[in-house]
Design a protein around this nucleic acid. Structure first.
Length: 154
DNA sequence: GCCAACGTTGGC
DNA sequence: GCCAACGTTGGC
């Protein structure tokens, strides 16, 4: 069992969008970075914990708790010519991009980025590192527990 | 909208 | 295989 922080732009998929989807779940399509892909393809397992993070928006931060509910499978968007995630080099036989499905556990009061930065216990979190732009980063179990215990409010 | 950081591309 | 150019990310 691992823990992850996964970024989504709320103008694309917000925590409220997730809450309104069937099964409150979504395919995490559109990851086009190899390291982030590898996390999904090689390491994620059903049941892994996810912080659902709002990025590139007015109030960036952790907006909810979610979980991984599928292992990785080929990202359908890479085959769709009209999609901005289309990849001409990907084939059905040799897909290049993968995604898992993620399901909402609960929406929480936003834990803002400045709030996260206040805590020395969290200063090593991948997403807080200078220059880090990865949309998926591992969360240490100690960081996961710290946030749940001290920062998560309904 | 700016811009630093950084991943990817492609010429050589 | 180097590396300059380019594109993207994402906080501010």
């Amino acid at each position: 069992m691992r823990y992850w922080l996964m970024k989504s732009e709320p103008t694309d998929v917000s925590i409220n969008d997730l809450a309104n989807f069937p099964e409150q779940s979504v395919a995490w399509y559109g990851v086009r970075n190899y390291l982030a892909r590898n996390y999904m393809r090689d390491q994620m397992q059903i049941g892994d914990g996810v912080f659902f993070y709002h990025s590139n928006c007015k109030e960036p931060g952790i907006a909810g708790i979610a979980k991984v509910i599928s292992v990785a499978y080929p990202d359908a968007k890479q085959f769709e010519k009209k999609s901005k995630y289309f990849d001409p080099k990907a084939t059905q036989e040799q897909p290049r991009w993968f995604n898992v499905d993620v399901q909402l556990v609960k929406k929480i009061a936003l834990i803002s980025l400045p709030e996260l930065r206040k805590h020395p216990e969290l200063e090593r979190m991948g997403t807080l590192q200078r220059g880090n732009r990865l949309s998926i980063t591992p969360v240490d179990p100690s960081e996961w527990k710290f946030i749940l215990k001290n920062l998560v409010r309904d």
